[in-house]
Simulated assay, not measured.
Amino acid sequence: MPSDAGFQCAGCGEWNETIVDESAGRRQTYVEDCQVCCKPNVLRIEWDEWQEAYRIESELES
């Protein structure tokens, strides 16, 4: 089941809306391009039980 989420681009700082595929597990890592500047961001996604939401950290792909 998909879940709406978002991340701040590590390159330009703009907010990006994304969808997390919950069937892929509570911890995920993948690359998604910024919707504004097109730079590839490595997203590290983890389920936060306290917030009951996915937490996403981003860094530029090297």
Rank of each mutant, 00 (worst) to 15 (best):
G11D: 15
S62L: 13
E49Y: 08
G6N: 02
I19T: 12
A10G: 15
E49W: 05
Q51W: 06
K39C: 05
T18A: 09
E61N: 14
Y30C: 00
G13Y: 13
M1L: 12
A53M: 13
C12H: 12
G13S: 06
E14D: 09
K39D: 12
C38P: 14
V31Q: 08
S58P: 12
W50E: 07
E17A: 05
E17S: 04
Q28V: 01
T29V: 12
C9S: 03
S58N: 08
V31S: 11
P40M: 10
E49N: 10
W50L: 13
A24C: 08
C9Y: 07
S3W: 09
L43V: 00
N41R: 04
N41D: 11
M1T: 05
N41K: 12
E17Q: 06
V20S: 01
S23M: 03
S3C: 13
S3E: 11
P40G: 11
Q51T: 03
Y54G: 00
Q8V: 14
G25R: 13
I56V: 09
C9H: 09
W47H: 08
V31W: 00
P40K: 04
S58R: 05
C38Y: 10
E46S: 09
S3H: 15
E61P: 14
Q35K: 09
Y30N: 04
E32K: 00
D33Q: 07
R44A: 05
D48Q: 10
A53E: 06
C12F: 02
N41I: 10
R26M: 12
E14C: 02
N16R: 00
L60S: 13
D33G: 03
A10K: 10
D4A: 11
E61R: 15
P2M: 12
N41T: 02
D33W: 08
S62E: 15
W47P: 07
G13P: 14
W47D: 01
E32L: 01
R27D: 14
D21K: 05
G6R: 09
E14Q: 15
S23V: 06
I56H: 03
Q35H: 14
A24E: 13
E22V: 09
N16L: 06
I19P: 04
E49L: 02
Q28M: 01
E46Q: 08
C37W: 08
E49H: 11
D21S: 04
G13C: 06
T18P: 11
W47C: 06
E17H: 03
W15C: 02
R27N: 14
C38L: 12
V36L: 11
E57W: 06
W50S: 08
Y54W: 07
G6A: 01
E22K: 15
D48P: 14
C38E: 09
I45Y: 08
Q35P: 03
E17V: 03
T18S: 01
C34H: 01
V20Q: 15
E14R: 13
W50N: 01
Y30I: 00
W47Q: 02
S58E: 10
W50H: 04
E57D: 15
S3K: 12
Q8S: 14
V36I: 06
S58M: 14
S23T: 12
E14L: 03
N41Y: 04
G6P: 13
N41F: 10
R27M: 11
C12Y: 11
I19G: 03
